[in-house]
């Protein structure tokens, strides 16, 4: 089980929760399950969500594996100059 910590703007999409638990082996599965359980997250996922796993931020590598029992963080997909 992965403990997924949400940032503020996602709370309204998850019914006010700060964090949710999801069974997922990689980022792709994580997004698929989040979207199924919390349809309000779809526009955020479409707009772009980055995932922090053990301190490394992944913006695009949806095949990135998530170790079991990890606490991960969802973040906005950052823009740069």
């Amino acid at each position: 089980m992965v403990h997924v910590v949400l940032w503020g703007a996602l709370k309204s999409a998850s019914g006010g929760k700060d964090a949710v638990d999801v069974e997922a082996r990689d980022i792709r599965e994580l997004f698929r399950k989040l979207e199924a359980e919390y349809p309000g997250m779809k526009p955020h996922i479409d707009r772009g969500i980055a995932v922090s796993i053990n301190g490394t931020i992944y913006r695009d590598t949806w095949s990135q594996t998530i170790p079991p029992d990890t606490e991960i963080y969802l973040l906005p997909r950052i823009a740069g100059g």
Partner: peptide, 20 residues
């Protein structure tokens, strides 16, 4: 305004609220 509950009924110049 996105990111606030309940969803506002009036339009606003605040497009989004976010918190960390």
């Amino acid at each position: 305004t996105e990111g606030v509950e309940p969803k506002p009924k009036k339009p606003s110049n605040i497009a989004k609220r976010t918190e960390f």
